[in-house]
Simulated scan of single mutants.
Amino acid sequence: MPELLRNTHFVVTVNPAAQLVRVTRSAVPSESAVQFEAIWMEVCRALDRAGRSGLSLLLDLRAAVGRNDPEYEAAMERVRPAVMRGFRRVAVLVQTTAGSLQIHRHRRQDFIERLIGSDEAKLLEYLDAGSHGR
């Protein structure tokens, strides 16, 4: 799959045949909430280059180090809509129950529909179903 972005924190790839953009987060923590927001905005620019319309988004956050201090929460609240807007479907791949609970809380706060889980095959099936109007 062609890469749209690769840095210390993220790899963003697009699979045109599957109509899928994948954002994979590394385990490298950000140094500050300001850096956290800046690197997510870099991801947003890569997603814009992919041309979000007609595509699904898989956010693979399994390796991410969770943060819930107020500055990070505020930054995440600002970037979530920018990351997820314009996609046909969104799924978030998590590894832990705590990660799942945090993403469910985000969904309740921002009203952006997404499927959340730790079963990659199930999430990909959900995203693929959206590409065929099922």
Results as ranks from 00 to 15, higher is better:
Met1Lys: 06
Met1Phe: 07
Pro2Trp: 04
Glu3Ile: 08
Leu4Ser: 10
Leu4Gly: 11
Leu5Tyr: 08
Thr8Trp: 04
His9Met: 06
Val11Ile: 11
Val11Thr: 14
Thr13Met: 12
Asn15Thr: 15
Asn15Ala: 13
Pro16Asp: 10
Ala17Cys: 10
Ala18Cys: 09
Gln19Leu: 15
Val23Tyr: 06
Val23Glu: 09
Arg25Ala: 10
Ala27Leu: 09
Ala27Val: 07
Val28Met: 10
Ala33Pro: 11
Val34Trp: 02
Gln35Tyr: 05
Gln35Thr: 09
Phe36Met: 06
Phe36Ser: 12
Glu37Gly: 10
Ala38Met: 03
Met41Trp: 03
Glu42Ser: 04
Val43Met: 02
Val43Ser: 04
Arg49Val: 02
Arg49Pro: 04
Ala50Cys: 04
Ala50Tyr: 02
Ala50Glu: 02
Ser53Met: 00
Leu55Trp: 04
Leu57Ser: 02
Leu57Asp: 00
Leu59Phe: 05
Asp60Ala: 08
Arg62Ala: 00
Arg62His: 01
Ala64Arg: 14
Ala64Pro: 05
Ala64Gln: 13
Val65Asn: 02
Val65Asp: 01
Gly66Lys: 01
Gly66Thr: 00
Asn68Glu: 06
Asn68Ser: 08
Asp69Ala: 06
Asp69Ile: 06
Asp69Thr: 11
Glu71Lys: 09
Ala75Thr: 06
Glu77Lys: 11
Glu77Arg: 14
Val79Pro: 07
Arg80Leu: 14
Arg80Asp: 14
Ala82Ile: 03
Val83Ala: 12
Arg88Asn: 14
Val92Tyr: 13
Val94Lys: 13
Gln95His: 14
Ala98Pro: 06
Gln102Val: 13
Ile103Ser: 15
His104Leu: 15
Arg105Glu: 15
Arg107Ser: 14
Gln109Gly: 10
Asp110Cys: 14
Ile112Ala: 13
Ile112Phe: 14
Arg114Cys: 15
Leu115Ala: 14
Gly117Asn: 11
Gly117Asp: 06
Ser118Lys: 09
Ser118Asn: 12
Glu120Ala: 10
Leu123Arg: 05
Asp128Lys: 06
Ala129Ile: 02
Ser131Gly: 05
Ser131Pro: 03
Ser131His: 00
Ser131Asn: 02
His132Gly: 04
